[in-house]
Amino acid sequence: MTIRVREAPDRRVEPPAPDVVGRGPWELAWRRLRADKVAMGSLVVIVLMVLVAVFAPVFAHVTGHPPNMQYHREGLTPDGLPRPPNSTFVLGTDDLGRDILVRIAYGARISLGVGVLATMLTVVVGVVLGLLAGFLRGVVDLVIARLIDVVLSIPFLLVAIALVSVSGPGLTITILVIGMFSWASMARIVRGQVLFLREREFVEAARSLGASDLRIMFVDVLPNVLAPVIVYTTLLIPVVIIVQATLSFLGLGLPAPAADWGGMISEAQNYYTVAWWFVLFPSLALLITTIAFNLLGDGVRDAVDPRIGRLVRPR
């Protein structure tokens, strides 16, 4: 082999690429996602659900039925049974003569709101602790890893029920309890990724530039764990929505008369033989939303990084 050196300085510019702005990994992922029909369908459903939640008051306005208004004449039989879907109450009424359509719309606010807020809490706590443990190692890692093990070994629903019954039901406590238990899986995933990333040369490069640990963690390492975090997050939202609905179903949801899906399904239990619409529509809303999030999550996983296909599913 021969190396020809001392040639004329090579400052040749590479042939210009068609785009000036590079297609980053996120954009590529987005392109892959856009090609995924199932995921895009799910995304449309989710966006619609979000619109329903945001514009819940419009439903109340158009129907003229506030979410908590009881219609004892038009909305209930003399024996107090719900009325089936009709021109006044498109999806029928519940056991207090309230409009199920309007309540589902308002319920979407709670389901999605709790889903998003509790998931955000989970993500923030899980990512920060996972980053710290994986990056700093040592005692910090030891403590956080133990904590993760402990939290993962706790039977979540039982403890959640116990905590909520002690503190009394409410939105904040529901979010806190869910966040308190879901962060561990997230932290474990992030920690694993960071353990591997911290040995990469670009981390060393940043350090040689004089970057602090904090900067390296959040500027250099964090963007590289976002892919699994995003996938896990999309899959976590439906789990959180179900947990919130379960707590509500068990009477640990929002105090009456707030409308939320789990609570509506719980109220409908006693009427399933006589009022199918009462149990069906809130259940459908819950089912469609969670399925949409799950399918989107699968799509995002495939789009973002096929390698993390074996990622544990949120429990």
């Binding site: 009881q70 004892h72 107090g80 049974l81 003569g97």
Partner: peptide, 13 residues
């Protein structure tokens, strides 16, 4: 009262 009796299952019960 009649509204309450109605939501409790109707005046028959």
């Amino acid at each position: 009262r009649s509204d309450m009796d109605q939501v409790l299952g109707g005046q028959t019960v």
